[in-house]
Amino acid sequence: MTHKVIKSAFKPVLLFVALFAFAVAAYSAATSASADSSDPAYSKVYNEAKKHLGSRYVYGAVGPTNFDCSGFTKYVYKKSIQKSIPRTAQAQYNGTKKVSKSNVQKGDLVYFGGSKHSISHVGMYIGNGRMIDSQNRGVITENVYSPWWHVVGFSRPTTLSYDD
């Protein structure tokens, strides 16, 4: 009998916790969506990157129809906001302002490889643990934290705001 009383007493608590978690998730999604609409520079970069989804990966290619990873990020920044960044993934990492994982923002670059001195891939962070990148399957949107990627750092090529 006591077990049933305890079990039924927890139902309202569990319901409250579930509703609270749902409310927090909804609020987080709403504030993240509103950040896109209030940030015209990020919107330009993101919209340019999205135009190329499905483009073929070709080693050494810098666009506008075929890309390698760093050719893609270089092309997107130059075409969308006239920001010139270095050509290779390692040079992009070396030549841009580093940011921590906890401070990464949409439009920042995310780097992969063996270490910060051995970078082999770059993608553009688009929020919610996702990126747009050019890799062997072409230009796609995918998870940053996938088993086949080893994140070694993040950088901010430019501040994407009204102040640019």
Rank of each mutant, 00 (worst) to 15 (best):
F20W: 08
F22W: 08
F22E: 09
V24F: 13
A25H: 11
A26V: 15
A26T: 13
A26G: 06
A26C: 12
S28D: 14
A29K: 08
A30T: 03
T31D: 13
A33F: 04
S37M: 07
S38H: 15
A41W: 04
A41E: 14
A41Y: 12
A41S: 12
Y42Q: 13
S43F: 09
K44C: 11
Y46A: 10
N47D: 15
E48D: 15
E48Q: 15
A49S: 09
K50S: 10
K50I: 12
K51Y: 12
K51C: 09
H52V: 08
H52A: 11
Y59I: 02
G60M: 07
A61T: 07
A61Y: 10
V62F: 04
P64K: 10
D68R: 05
D68C: 02
D68H: 00
G71E: 00
F72S: 05
T73S: 11
Y77K: 02
K78G: 01
K79C: 00
I81Q: 00
I81R: 01
I81F: 07
I85W: 12
I85L: 10
A89G: 10
Q90K: 06
Q90W: 02
A91M: 07
Y93V: 03
N94L: 13
G95L: 05
S100N: 02
S100I: 00
N103K: 14
N103P: 02
N103T: 05
V104T: 11
V104W: 04
Q105K: 15
D108K: 05
V110Y: 01
Y111P: 02
G113S: 13
H117G: 15
S118Q: 10
S120H: 11
S120D: 14
S120V: 10
H121Y: 11
H121M: 01
V122G: 02
G127K: 01
N128P: 11
N128C: 05
G129D: 01
R130C: 00
R130S: 06
M131P: 03
M131A: 03
I132H: 01
Q135R: 14
R137C: 08
R137E: 15
G138Y: 12
V139S: 09
V139L: 11
T141G: 06
E142G: 13
N143D: 08
V144G: 04
S146Y: 10
P147K: 13
